[in-house]
């Protein structure tokens, strides 16, 4: 490994700042000093934080969690459409009834979606995009719903079997 002085000779400071973060203090006492300074800064910044900024941070957290779940191949039974919708409403500090009014949906229907007793209609998903000022696009909600349905299909054979009586003819071979 190169000594830090060699590194600094080879590159300009501008180039280094764009590409390198050097290790901070290594010994325990210096590190504790650094962490206590960090806590002081954090406290000051927290005190300066506006309500809008808090809300944006909470909504960004939700958006990134949704993005990561969509990028992950794994399915999770707890991360269903209604869960994320509930998180969206809770972070906005709204009651279900108030939110239902804001997107012109029956409060009972909203509650049933959140509690997984029914799936959302396309219209509700489009309204969620509009309500969020397009920060939570409809495509994101559709993909969450798709993952939920994939999980349900994989774990509940009765969803398909309940339609058996309606199928009058079927292929006689397997591929």
């Amino acid at each position: 490994m190169k000594p830090q002085k060699d590194i600094e000779k080879k590159h300009t400071n501008k180039e280094l700042a764009a590409s390198i973060v050097f290790p901070g203090p290594q010994n325990l006492r210096d590190r504790e000093d650094m962490l206590s300074a960090l806590k002081e800064i954090r406290k000051r910044k927290k005190q300066e934080q506006t309500d809008d900024s808090k809300l944006i941070a909470q909504l960004l957290q939700l958006k990134f969690l949704m993005e990561d779940y969509l990028n992950d191949k794994a399915l999770n039974q707890h991360l269903y459409f209604g869960y994320f919708l509930k998180e969206y409403i809770v972070r906005l500090e709204k009651k279900y009834k108030q939110f239902a009014e804001e997107i012109d949906v029956n409060p009972t229907e909203l509650s049933q979606i959140i509690n997984r007793h029914r799936n959302p209609t396309d219209k509700i998903i489009y309204r969620l995009e509009i309500h969020s000022n397009r920060n939570f696009p409809a495509i994101m909600w559709f993909r969450i719903l798709e993952k939920q349905r994939e999980y349900e299909l994989m774990h509940d054979a009765s969803i398909v079997n309940s339609e058996k009586s309606h199928v009058k003819k079927q292929l006689s071979f397997s591929l």
Binding site: S19, V21, F22, P23
Partner: peptide, 11 residues
């Protein structure tokens, strides 16, 4: 009290 991510090293 800290509630942060530290970039300890980057190259």
């Amino acid at each position: 009290d800290t509630n942060a991510i530290e970039i300890a090293l980057l190259e």
